[in-house]
Each structure stands twice: as C-alpha cells, then as structure tokens.
Amino acid sequence: MTAISELGAGEFSHQALLYHDDSSYLAGVVPFVLEGLAAGKPVAVAVPGPKLDRIEAALGPAARDVRLLDMAEVGRNPGRIIPSVLHDFADAHQGRVRVLGEPIWPERSSAEYPACVQHEALINASFAGSAVTILCPYDTSRLSEQALADAHATHPVIADESGTRASEGYAPDEAFSRYNLPLTAPPDAEEFSFDLGSLTKARHVAVARGAALGLSQDRLDDFALAVAELCANSVQHGGGSGVLRVWREHGDVIAEVSDRGYLSDPLAGRRPASPRQLGGRGLLLVHRVVDLVRTHSTPEGTTTRIYLRG
C-alpha cells in the first residue's frame, strides 16, 4: 500500500479548524473564504445545511462568488467526496482553489464515521503536490475525544483561535489502517455464492431481496448497479468468485460482497476517471450511487459493504 504520509506536499494545504461555538466557527471559516476570494481563487464551501445557511448570511454579497454545497447531501457517502466534490471543483479550475469542507459532524452515524476518517486521511495522498487548500472544521464541544485525536492524525496542520501549528499527531497511514475494520454480517442475511457463470443470478438475488426489504424503484436501480459492479470486480480481481449477502439494518438496505482479493490501493474508487480511460470505473460508480461504502481488506481477502437508505 502506498504510504499516504510519504507523498510530496507541494503547495497543498490540509488543515483542521478546531472550533467550539458558532462565534469561533464563523471567525475561522469566513476569513478563510474571503481571503481566497481576495486572492482571486475559486472557493467552494461544503458543510452541513444549517451551517451553510450561517456562512452564506455572514458572507453577505460575497456569497454569490462562492460555490455552496450541502455536505449532508453531496458527502452523504464520504467515499464520493474526493472525486465528486473536491476533484470536481479543483479540476474545473486547474487546481488553484480553496475548499471549506466539513465531512465529520456530531450527527454522523457510527457506521459512517470510520469511512469519514479514512476519507480525511486519503485527502493528503489525493492532492499532494497540488495547489489545493482545504480547511476542515471540527466541533470540539460536541465531537468525541477520539474524533479530535483522529483530526490531528489526518491533518498536517491544526488551526484554532490561537493560530496554526503543525500537528504533533499527524499519522494518516495509521489513521486509515485503524479504521480498516472487520465487517460481520448478521446470521439472517440472505447469502448467495457466485462466480463468472452466476453473475446475472447474483444481481437478480440482490434485486429481489432489496425489493422485499422496501427499496423504491429508483433506489433499487442504484442497488442493482452497485451490486453488479462489486460482483464483477470480485470475479475479475478477487479470485474468480465471491459471496453476496443482503439484509436490512437501522433503516438501511445493506449488501456486502466478500472475495479472496486484496485492495492494495487505498484510493481505488476515489480517483476521477480520465475520458480516455478504459475500464476501472466500477468502484467509482459504486461510490456515486450508494449512501455509504465500507471496506475491510487484508491479503487474505476483501469485504465491501454498501448502504442504501430505504
């Protein structure tokens, strides 16, 4: 696995902003946005909806020059933030941009949180050597001590009311690995073993089970597409076969695919596809159409789990 922390820094900046109330939040984020605009840089703000409204109001007329995004929507699946939010904006402006992005907030679920930390760790590898500047706010009054420790591990620079400093706990590779957690399906999950000859049947099994578990037709189409991509990936890269499991949990319809492959590239599925690229879009597509992706991968095998809200 490529060491996240060993890739060059260039002009790239990835900072965690530690704030404790609305006043310290706006005092940190508004100057960041206005300084970017004053320097002639495109600026995007991707934070949860209520905070987006506060920032827009605080910016006044300057808000018209900022790309405003509700992170609760565009970043519902943390795995699509890098390709579909950060790269989408940076690549459209030749990379010299500022982004205020808040992927971790107190209402994130326990299932989402590990994927959020891995996303933050991977930002450093994805944009190393670029001129992208990213500021990520963290609520010290409501987030756990572990979440704040993870912020120090995934950001090379920490900012707060006292200024900025290098993070003494910066260790993105360790943070990513810490949340490469085993995934165990419940005993009542629908299970189907597949290989090349039964890929179509695997998709039909998933669709039938997803419909029985209450997915709408639109969501069922996304579910079928994601499952088909994961199963095909197992056949091509995971030893020629795999096991599909489907169940419902806490309002989500969940499917996971396990195989004997090893996902050695932590950025797989998070790099934007080149227009001339042949293949290699399967995991990227999965991240785009589902609400959450969790992965556990070791040299002994890989399990990829997808969540869709019913």
Rank of each mutant, 00 (worst) to 15 (best):
Gly129Leu: 09
Asp139Ile: 04
Leu148Pro: 01
Gln146Lys: 15
His119Phe: 12
His155Gln: 04
Thr184Ile: 14
Gly163Trp: 01
Leu122Phe: 01
Val157Trp: 02
Cys136Lys: 06
Ala121Cys: 07
Gln146Phe: 11
Ser167Cys: 05
Ser162Gly: 12
Ile123Phe: 06
Ala131Trp: 05
Ser141His: 11
Leu143Met: 13
Ser130Leu: 07
Gly129Glu: 08
Ser167Ile: 02
Ala185Pro: 09
Gly169Ala: 02
Val157Ala: 06
Glu168Leu: 15
Leu122Ala: 00
Arg178Ser: 13
Glu120Met: 14
Ala121Gly: 04
Asp150Gln: 11
Ala166Lys: 11
Thr184Met: 10
His155Glu: 04
Arg165Ile: 00
Ser167Ala: 07
Tyr179His: 08
Ala128Trp: 11
Leu148Val: 05
Ala128Pro: 02
Leu143Ala: 08
Tyr138Arg: 14
Leu143Val: 07
Tyr179Glu: 00
Asp160Lys: 00
Thr133Asp: 15
Asn180Arg: 06
Glu174Met: 12
His119Gln: 10
His119Lys: 07
Ser126Asn: 08
Val157Phe: 04
His152Tyr: 11
Val157Lys: 03
Ser177Asn: 14
Thr164Phe: 09
Leu135Gly: 05
Ile123Asp: 00
Glu174Ile: 10
Leu183Pro: 02
Gly129Tyr: 06
Pro156Asn: 09
Pro172Leu: 04
Arg165Lys: 08
Thr133Cys: 13
Gly169Met: 01
Thr140Trp: 07
Asp150Pro: 09
Thr164His: 10
Asp139Ala: 08
His152Ile: 04
Ile123Cys: 09
Leu122Arg: 03
Leu148Cys: 03
Ser141Val: 07
Ala171Ser: 15
Ile123Met: 09
Asp150Tyr: 06
Ala159His: 11
Ala171Val: 10
Asp139Ser: 08
Gln146Pro: 04
Gly163Ala: 02
Ala147Arg: 05
Leu143Trp: 07
Glu174Lys: 12
His119Tyr: 11
Asp150Lys: 04
Ser167Asn: 05
Ile158Phe: 01
Pro137Trp: 06
Val132Gln: 04
His155Val: 02
Ser167Leu: 03
Leu148Trp: 01
Val132Gly: 04
Ser141Arg: 12
Thr154Leu: 02
Ser177Cys: 13
Asp173Ala: 03
Ser126Thr: 06
Ser130Ala: 09
Gly163Leu: 03
Ile158His: 00
Ser167Glu: 00
Ala149Ile: 13
Leu143Gln: 12
Ala131His: 11
Leu181Met: 14
Val132Phe: 08
Ser167Lys: 03
Cys136Tyr: 03
Asp173Trp: 04
Asp160Phe: 00
Ala128Leu: 11
Thr140Asp: 09
Leu148Ile: 09
Ile134Trp: 01
Ile123Gly: 01
Tyr179Gln: 01
Ala125Asn: 09
Thr133Pro: 07
Ala147Cys: 14
Ser130His: 04
